[in-house]
């Protein structure tokens, strides 16, 4: 990782050996990466201000994702500890998404292209579509956030619909593509 003026005294990331972190990415500070996680090219995960970050097993972080945290503000993770950013298991953080701590993203969440989660909790199993903003709210588990939605008051968050059968079609497609790419990365890194 490129050094920042303060990065010399940062903790090093802890990456499970079964995780795949592409070399064309930027992972610095106290980031705990679980088993089978994919960190794609072009991502920036910097626990240099807010920390630590946790990324649960089986989660994928796609190309162009930025994870960062404010120095102030923490969320409580599922293990009861405090984190700047907690991302649960089997979540899918898709291309260009921004997860800015303090932020909690629960197990099996899907965060669509270019959506932002900042100072918020997104409960387990939520589907967030594309270009949405989720800020200063707590979204209960299993909710659906449409493309382009701006959810910045708790009232809006409470009115969100539940995920319905069919909503996960897009999410499933993106996840499948990711599996294909993961296979590609494995091949590329074996060749290298």
């Amino acid at each position: 990782a490129p050094p920042t003026p303060w990065s010399h005294d940062l903790a090093k990331p802890e990456v499970d050996e079964s995780a795949f972190v592409h070399s064309f990415s930027n992972l610095i500070g106290d980031v705990r990466v679980g088993a089978g996680v994919l960190v794609a090219p072009g991502t920036s995960i910097r626990a240099d201000e807010g920390s630590p970050f946790a990324i649960g097993s089986g989660t994928n972080i796609q190309d162009g994702v930025v994870v960062h945290g404010l120095e102030q503000g923490r969320v409580v993770g599922d293990d009861g500890n405090s984190y700047s950013v907690w991302i649960g298991r089997d979540a899918c953080i898709t291309h260009m998404a921004l997860i800015h701590g303090p932020a909690y993203v629960g197990d099996k969440c899907f965060i669509g292209f270019r959506s932002t989660v900042f100072n918020a909790r997104v409960g387990a199993g939520c589907i967030v579509m594309m270009h949405a903003l989720i800020q200063d709210v707590e979204i209960p588990p299993g909710k659906y956030v449409p493309s382009g939605a701006v959810i910045t008051t708790q009232q809006q968050a409470d009115r969100l619909p539940d995920v319905r059968p069919g909503d996960e079609k897009f999410a499933r497609h993106v996840v499948e593509v990711n599996e294909a790419l993961r296979a590609g990365y494995r091949c590329a890194s074996d060749e290298a």
Partner: peptide, 28 residues
Amino acid sequence: AVLQAAPGSRIVIGDGACIGAGAVLSAC
């Protein structure tokens, strides 16, 4: 920029095309 094609998919960039900073092309 990140240009990646999954196995069986392709990306083709023509003459004079410009791809901006940090763009992501993910073919599948």
